[in-house]
Computed example of a mutant assay.
Amino acid sequence: MKTLVRWLCIALAAMIAHPAMADELRPAVIEMTQMDSSALSENEEGSSQGTLDHEWVLEWKLPVAANRSQSAAPTAQPVVPDVCEIVVQPVERAASLALLGRTEMRCSGDLAGEAFGLVGLIGNADGIARFVPLDGPVQSFRLTAAEPTATIRAEPNVMQVLRDYFIIGAEHILFGWDHLLFVIALVLLVRTPWSVVKAATAFTIAHSITLVATSLGYTGLPSRPVEALIALSIVFLAVEVAVVLRDPDRQTLTRRFPWLVAFGFGLFHGFGFAGALAEIGLPQGEIAAALFAFNIGVEAGQLLVIGALVAVLIAMTRWLPKLETPTIRLATYAIGGTGSFWLIERVVG
């Protein structure tokens, strides 16, 4: 048992210390949009070709990992329905950490039951497919390497929306490192189960408020100051953990009012969640279901992290008390260093 706990401690420290990009969840997106005649391309002679020739536009965004050159193009490629024919040569251009593509298609017959998507997604990479007809609700689908295409439905399926956005929300807290480090630092500082529950609940309520309000268009903040404040929240908690490690009896602000600090910073984290969700998009007609499922997914991922971390801390206290303080100190310096780097990068860079 001691060996197992020791390896869990090492894995925890390595995970936190690993240099990761903030908000790594940047899914590939492909969108198939029906166009009216006024929005279509012109032919080589300069006249409009009409809705029968250019009825649909297909656009896609393929993220490029931050540690790769922009010239290292992603391998994923768009898939078009069998009843559609590409009539405009696809055009791709580089953007910030992404490759953007666009083409136009002519489709015939009913598209219900047809498939489109992105083949070549690597590993655990996710994608979002959106189908946007002129006379019907938007349909959204989650794509994976194992299931790279989505089947267009005659009518949207609310259960599919709930499932997909729940998974997206859980993945965002598990792979969005800035939110994850905040939760980890909060647990390392608060420690007592009831205080952790209150703080986590306050954090969830706060980020849910700003996420929903921003997604519905009632409020919003520019992404750059929001991302800087999220990084600042990580540094703030890391400093408090370091202070408590030196003086275990010190009652810092978060130790006295964990729910208040978690709620305050949670509001800004909600703006960050909303920014990530804006990149993915919300299905028209199922916005409430998508927001609900995304929030529940975030909460599920958060509880998973908190439960795992509390279990490790309890195991260390019981079986490896001599490793507890050094491990927490290592994790704290890694969290604080990473948060400081992000803070400087987001303020200056």
Rank of each mutant, 00 (worst) to 15 (best):
S208T: 15
A65L: 11
R250Y: 14
I30K: 05
E299I: 07
A300H: 01
E45N: 12
A28Q: 00
A300F: 06
Q89L: 13
L304T: 14
T332M: 04
I328S: 02
F175W: 11
A20E: 07
G127T: 05
L245K: 10
L12K: 01
Q77Y: 00
T144E: 02
E279A: 08
M15G: 15
Y333G: 08
E324W: 11
I296T: 09
D82I: 11
V79S: 10
L143T: 09
A199E: 02
T332F: 00
A331W: 02
R329H: 10
L118P: 11
Q34K: 09
D247C: 09
G101H: 00
L237D: 07
E104D: 13
R153E: 15
A98Q: 12
L323P: 10
G285K: 09
L118G: 09
M32Q: 06
A170I: 07
E279Y: 00
C84D: 07
I30W: 02
L260K: 03
G113M: 07
L260M: 13
T219M: 14
V187L: 04
L143F: 02
S208K: 05
I30D: 06
V312T: 10
G109H: 04
A72H: 10
N124Q: 13
T201C: 04
E324P: 06
P321E: 13
I128M: 04
